[in-house]
C-alpha cells in the first residue's frame, strides 16, 4: 500500500487514475479507517486530499457558500455564515458521529461513502447543493442528488474526486431542517431521516419545497409528492398529514439490524412532518 499526500486536485486525480489497483481517497478517514480495520478493503493506494490547496476552506460564492471537501464537521459548525443560511445542512453534518468524529469527518466523505443512511446527504439534496468534481479529464459540477447511485455506489468515474460542495444562495423567507431517528441520542447510524428546505411568500404560504428522505431506499430519495403536499399551504394539519403520507409512500426500505420496514416507513413520515415544521419556523412562518 502507498500513501500519497498531493498538493493539487489534478495531481490527486491523476494518481488515482493511474493506480491499477484498489484506491481510497482519505479526507477525514472516519469511514476509510473503519473499512481498513474490518478488512473490508485493502487498498493499494490511499490519497490524502487534505493538503490540496484550498480544500479546507469555506468561501462565500454567489450568495451561497463553497465548502471545501476536507472541511470537518466541527469547522463547519463554527461558521456563523453557513449556519445562518443553511442551518439544516449544518445540523445534519454535525449529527455525524461523536465529538471525536466531528473533528475529522467531511460532507464530501459522507457523500462518497455511499451510505443510504448518510446524515448530511438528505439535507444537501433538499438544499439543492452541487458538488464540484475534479478528474483526470477536468472539472465538472454535479448536483449532490445525482452522485449516489446505490448503496456504496457513486456516479464518479475512476480518478474523480469531489473537491468542494456549493450551498447555493436562497431567496428571503427560506428555511431548512434535518431530523434523523436513532435508537440512542448519539453514536448511531440513522434508521430513517428527512431533510426539508422551503421558501415562503410574504403571507407565510409555502412557495417552494424540497423533501429528501434518508435510510428508506437504496439512495437518498427526493420526494416530489411530499413537496407538492405542502406547496401552497401554511402547513396546516391537512398539509402535514398529506406530507406524512407522501413521505411514507415514497419509502422502500429494508428490514435490518437497525430497523424494520414498517418502522422506517412510519418514522420517515413523522420526521418529514417534524422537519417541515422546523424549516417553516426558520423561514419565518408562524403557526
Amino acid at each position: 500500500m502507498r500513501y500519497l499526500r498531493p498538493n493539487t486536485a489534478a495531481e490527486a486525480a491523476q494518481s488515482l487514475a493511474d493506480e491499477p489497483g484498489v484506491t481510497r481517497v482519505l479526507a477525514g478517514g472516519t469511514d476509510v479507517l473503519v473499512q481498513l480495520k474490518a478488512g473490508m478493503v485493502e487498498p493499494d493506494l490511499i490519497v490524502d486530499i487534505k493538503h490540496i490547496d484550498g480544500i479546507r476552506s469555506i468561501t462565500a460564492e454567489a450568495g451561497g457558500f463553497r465548502i471545501g471537501a476536507a472541511v470537518a464537521g466541527a469547522e463547519l459548525g463554527a461558521h456563523a455564515g453557513v449556519k445562518a443560511l443553511w442551518p439544516g445542512v449544518v445540523e445534519a453534518f454535525e449529527l455525524i458521529g461523536s465529538t471525536q468524529v466531528q473533528g475529522r469527518c467531511t460532507m464530501a466523505g459522507n457523500l462518497c461513502n455511499g451510505s443510504p443512511a448518510a446524515d448530511s446527504v438528505p439535507a444537501l439534496v433538499a438544499a439543492g447543493a452541487v458538488a464540484r468534481i475534479v478528474g483526470p479529464k477536468g472539472t465538472r459540477d454535479v448536483p449532490v442528488r445525482d452522485i449516489p447511485t446505490g448503496p456504496g455506489k457513486l456516479s464518479l468515474t475512476k480518478g474523480e474526486i469531489i473537491t468542494s460542495i456549493l450551498l447555493p444562495a436562497r431567496p428571503p423567507r427560506s428555511g431548512d431542517a434535518y431530523l434523523r431517528f436513532i435508537p440512542r441520542t448519539e453514536m448511531d447510524i440513522a434508521v430513517a431521516s428527512a431533510g426539508v428546505s422551503l421558501t415562503l411568500d410574504a403571507a407565510g404560504k409555502i412557495t417552494a419545497a424540497a423533501v429528501a428522505l434518508g435510510a428508506v431506499a437504496p439512495t437518498v430519495r427526493l420526494v416530489e409528492a411530499a413537496s407538492a403536499a405542502i406547496i401552497g399551504t401554511k402547513l396546516d394539519d391537512a398539509a402535514l398529514s398529506n406530507l406524512m403520507q407522501a413521505a411514507s409512500a415514497a419509502c422502500s426500505p429494508i428490514d435490518d439490524k437497525r430497523g424494520t420496514i414498517a418502522f422506517r416507513t412510519q418514522v420517515a413520515g413523522v420526521l418529514a412532518k417534524r422537519a417541515a415544521l422546523i424549516a417553516y419556523s426558520r423561514a419565518g412562518g408562524s403557526k
Partner: peptide, 24 residues
C-alpha cells in the same frame, strides 16, 4: 471510532487515534 478510549488531540482537535493514520 465507537468507544472513544483512544481519544487524543490532533492539532488541538479531539479525535479518535484509531481513525487517524500515523502517516497523516
Amino acid at each position: 471510532g465507537d468507544c472513544g478510549a483512544c481519544s487524543v488531540t490532533l492539532n488541538g482537535r479531539l479525535v479518535c487515534a484509531c481513525l487517524v493514520l500515523g502517516a497523516e
